[in-house]
Amino acid sequence: MDAIIVDRTFSIPKIKDAVWMSDEHLRTLVKGGQTVWLHSFRHPTRLASLPAQDHGIVNIPVFTSNQPRHLALIRSLAAIGDTVFAIQECTTVLPGILKDGSSGSSDIMRAYFAKMLAAEGRIFGALEMSAPNVRTMSLQMGDVSSLPLSTLREALNADVIVVFGASWIKGQLIDALIERKALNIHMGISPYYRGSACNFWALYDGNPDLVGATIHLLSKGLDSGDMLFHALPPREACEPFDLGMYAVAAAHQKLAEAIAHNRILDAKPIPQDKSLEIRYTRNSDFTDAIAAEYLARSLDADTIGKLLASAPERHAILR
């Protein structure tokens, strides 16, 4: 159904805004003397007939980071779960402004990341505190694989485990996560784009239809696990930096819905067909020269819209 909605050029975030009241509407009701009471947290069609997950009885560990898009995933999972264990590997929240080891701090990187941060702010809002049902463990990026498993004992005793934006997990931890069928959100459409900054490279190559996310079973290789489904942003004219962030939002939403409805493993995991690979990229591929060339093209929403309209059929996308 979600795929049909997107195919009909409807935007689920926009539908959400059109369907439900906002915080401000609730405040207006209360100020006006109306009585606002809570009848439930979630509202599936038939509360009594759905599994425990739909009642919010589920623990969800998430191995992630600390940028607004990562916090947004934590919020989405907290909205459907009982407790979220957020194991956050942290980086600067001012990439390109403060040196963080991967993006450098050149003028061109500052310009690039300023645009990315602005888009992230538009889609996910500013940094904010976590929900009350989130328990956190804060680490430096790269630390998580070196922790003794006993440190993560509580988090590993869980119903479903999510990885999004963490470092490349190795050692005992990757074995433990694979055994528990942990899910990875790969920001990129596998098997077409694998590695780092895939959605950037899809835009760089003129393939905005391959901007999206892959939810797959975690594996030892980078983004190489069997795929469960893809999540795509609305197929409509859109500023390129916004498109990438809408892809993140689509991934959060589709994953949260699948967890909430206990549908995660409904689909048979599909091995990745490496013959379809367009690019496999590393952090070191994203250089000042590449970023400068990309920014100089000044891709706009109209161009994105035209490229989307003329994109070929991609048979490996799992809707």
């Binding site: 689920i12 959400k16 439900w20 009241m21 915080d23 609730l26 606002v36 009471w37 809570l38 009848h39 439930s40 947290f41 979630r42 509202h43 947004a72 919020r75 989405s76 907290a78 909205a79 459907i80 929900a131 939403q253 949260a256 819905e257 909430a260």
Partner: peptide, 10 residues
Amino acid sequence: IYSSVFCGGL
């Protein structure tokens, strides 16, 4: 109301 939609749910 149900509150999930006020904290990011759908």
